[in-house]
Amino acid sequence: MTLFQETGWFFLKKALIRIGGACLVLFAAATLTFIALHLAPGDPVTAILGGSANPTPETIQEIRQEYGLDQPIMVQYGLHVWRVLSGQLGSSFSQHMPVTDVLWQQAPHTLKLMLASLITAWVFAVLSVTLSARKPIFDSAFSSLETLFAGLPQFWIGIMLLWLFAYQLGLLPPAGTHGFSSLILPTLSLAIPLGGFLAQVMRESFKTTLDQPFVLTARSRGVSDNSVRFRHVLRHALLPGVSLSTWAIGALVGNVVPVEVVFSRQGLGRQLFLAVSMHDMPLVTGIILFIALVYVLASFLADVLYVIIDPRIQEARV
């Protein structure tokens, strides 16, 4: 009974710390966004009206009032934080629609692309490492390939893939968000460097594990090489990959911006790019908060996966 209470209290404390941390991350994201957009030069009213047009003075005054731009900066900041804390993301002035609607429309496309890239990267990394580690020639060949992949910039891969598969061969659509075929090239642009990176990390721990005594034991029991690799060694090599995947999700959110732009895809990345150039505070804040939320959730998920893959971690932590 006492034991249960203690464990329950422990989990509650842990959850509270995690939620508190998440709130802090979101609050910091909101504040940094506000500061960054206010440090950037220029008047958002010109962005709202599209710059060099011909508005009447009454129109300009109306916009200042509507978006609270006539208030002192601290009041604007206070209002901004209050709105974020109370969950009102407000209305995007560059899109003329509620920020939540923009997120609702654009997020699925970005999440789909991120998920597809993450899966592709993992498939590549697992296959590349498991099938080639410690095998003559293959090991160094694939290891070099992974290093090369990890070093390529996403937008460059995107342009090369576009040139080859869309412009020259005409096999895949050059632009747009229309079903599976238009997802292939953007996914590869993101997955190739990520896959290379994941594989590099996994290869190291995979090789260390191959030297462990239990591998020798398994082999002595007559288990085939492939079986040893996939069923026994891989499990140990996954851990660094899983913890890196949290980081990878954060990196993907950033890298998705040029990729969505190059492939003219729908999504939060391209939307964020437009919103920043329009000084659209509510929309930038909304997207940043959403990304921060995804990041927080991903790191939580990574913790859970850790325990599933290696139960010893939970024991050690308790």
Partner: peptide, 18 residues
Amino acid sequence: WRFIPEPSARFAAVQAAE
């Protein structure tokens, strides 16, 4: 009425009859 901001991708789309 589609949006393809990238100029070369837009031209490739009409060449490919997309």
